[in-house]
């Protein structure tokens, strides 16, 4: 396989040359996945926190469902979002299909269960420690959720990282709802799929390396932040 050598060559040539087409694709990938993780955090973190501090009938079933949803196949999510956003679907008038907005929606649906499930575990552990202390201070349920979310913020970054990994790496959903339109909805993964289908395996692998590099940089940055927090016993 001479493809590996060529792939590294392609990857460095693309990165080193700041190839504008590649930069556009990288930026769109980041914009879509980071926004999806943001939205997922806004929904998933409070949801996970509420589940973490609540005891109610049927909670176990909800947790099973949530953990199951972590494994939602992206293609299925893509199809569901397509059917909603299609002009023949209920949300057709929003004209979101084949836009980055549609990709953000699809990725958010994939990431919310991950963020919520991991946040639930983190918050539940911290709640066991904080519960009596906060109650004696007269903190109500919502105040407790907010306090736990804030105090667990560095641990919750890990949940968001896991969500980001899922979002930036999936291809099935964004291909269907984004359409892989050049300059509009082409992201790293759909570009890799396209180059693979053109038989440009080295270029596809090169793009894969760029994606990997991107993920490494983001992970390292977040882990660095966590390590800083750990030094002040905040994590």
């Amino acid at each position: 396989m001479q493809n590996f050598g060529a792939a590294f060559g392609d990857a460095f040539r693309l990165l080193g040359g700041f190839d504008p087409a590649l930069m556009e694709i990288i930026l769109l990938s980041l914009r879509v996945s980071v926004t999806a993780v943001f939205i997922s955090a806004l929904i998933g973190l409070p949801l996970g926190a509420i589940l973490g501090v609540s005891r109610f009938r049927g909670r176990a079933a909800v947790l099973v469902l949530l953990n199951t949803l972590m494994g939602l196949p992206p293609v299925v999510v893509g199809l569901l979002v397509y059917l909603m956003l299609s002009n023949a679907g209920p949300l057709g008038p929003l004209a979101l299909l084949y836009t980055p907005g549609a990709m953000i929606i699809a990725q958010s649906i994939l990431v919310i269960p991950i963020v919520a499930a991991l946040a639930r575990q983190t918050i539940e552990d911290m709640h066991a420690e904080y519960d009596e202390q906060l109650r004696i201070l007269g903190v109500g349920r919502w105040g407790m959720v907010a306090t736990l979310l804030w105090d667990a913020r560095y641990s919750l970054l890990t949940a968001m990282l896991a969500g980001f990994g899922r979002a930036v790496a999936e291809v099935g959903a964004v291909l269907i709802v984004g359409g892989n339109i050049n300059h509009v909805t082409r992201v790293m993964t759909t570009a890799i799929a396209l180059e693979t289908s053109k038989g440009n395996l080295a270029l596809a692998l090169g793009l894969g390396l760029v994606l990997l590099l991107l993920a490494i940089v983001i992970n390292a940055a977040v882990m660095g932040l966590r390590a800083t927090a750990a030094r002040s016993a905040h994590a």
Partner: peptide, 27 residues
């Protein structure tokens, strides 16, 4: 808790800006 609320609000604003971006250009 004000700080958390502020963080959430600004996060939501950022998300909306990014999400709303594509609708504004290239009609």
């Amino acid at each position: 808790m004000k700080r958390i609320r502020r963080a959430f609000i600004s996060a939501a604003a950022i998300a909306l800006c990014v999400l709303g971006g594509p609708a504004l250009a290239g009609e």
